[in-house]
Simulated assay, not measured.
Amino acid sequence: MTRFRPCIDLHHGAVKQIVGSSLNDHDENSLRTNFVATQPAEWYADLYRRDGLTGGHVIKLGPGNDEAARAALAAHPGGLHIGGGIDATNAETWLAAGASHVIVTSCLFNRDGIFQKHILQELVSAVGANRLVIDLSCRRLAGGWAVAMNRWQTITSLRITTDTLDSLAEHCAEFLIHAADAEGLCQGIDEELVALLGSWKGRPMTYAGGIATMADLDLIDRLSGGSIDATVGSSLDLFGGSGVKYADLVAREQQAQP
Rank of each mutant, 00 (worst) to 15 (best):
L80D: 00
R70V: 14
V147N: 00
E42F: 14
I8D: 07
G78K: 04
I86D: 05
R32M: 14
I134M: 10
C138H: 04
G209A: 09
R159W: 08
H11N: 15
L73H: 09
L165A: 05
R140D: 07
S30G: 10
E92I: 04
L236G: 13
S106P: 13
V250M: 09
V250W: 02
D46E: 15
Y44G: 11
Y207N: 00
V36W: 00
A169L: 01
S234P: 00
V102F: 03
A126L: 04
A68T: 01
L158F: 07
N65Q: 13
T231H: 10
A195K: 07
E170G: 08
I177F: 03
M205P: 09
S30M: 11
I82Y: 01
I18M: 13
D166A: 10
A69K: 00
D135L: 01
D66E: 15
V127W: 05
V147P: 05
M1D: 13
L193R: 00
M214C: 08
F239H: 14
W43G: 14
A230N: 05
E253Q: 11
S30H: 09
R70I: 11
F239P: 13
L219S: 10
T2W: 04
K245I: 06
M205Q: 07
L193H: 02
S157G: 12
D229M: 02
G241T: 04
S199R: 12
V232A: 06
E28W: 13
R70F: 05
E42V: 12
L53T: 01
A212G: 04
Q255M: 14
Y48H: 12
H12I: 06
Q187D: 11
F239W: 08
F4M: 12
P77G: 09
A72W: 11
L61E: 03
A96R: 15
D9V: 14
I103M: 10
H101F: 09
F175S: 06
I119H: 08
L193T: 00
T54L: 12
F4Q: 04
A251M: 11
R222C: 03
S235G: 11
R139S: 08
R139T: 07
H57S: 10
L219Y: 07
Y207R: 01
C107Q: 02
R3G: 10
R50P: 15
A126C: 07
H57Y: 07
G210F: 03
Q153S: 15
A180L: 09
L193Y: 00
T213H: 10
L196I: 12
W94C: 01
R5A: 02
W152K: 09
S157M: 00
A208H: 10
D221W: 04
N110M: 03
A74D: 03
I220F: 03
R203S: 05
R140F: 01
R131D: 05
T164Y: 04
D221Q: 11
A208P: 05
T89E: 12
F239T: 06
I103C: 09
I211T: 11
Q39L: 15
A96P: 08
H118K: 11
V58C: 02
R50F: 14
R151W: 03
A75R: 05
V244R: 01
A68S: 09
H57C: 12
W200G: 01
G62H: 10
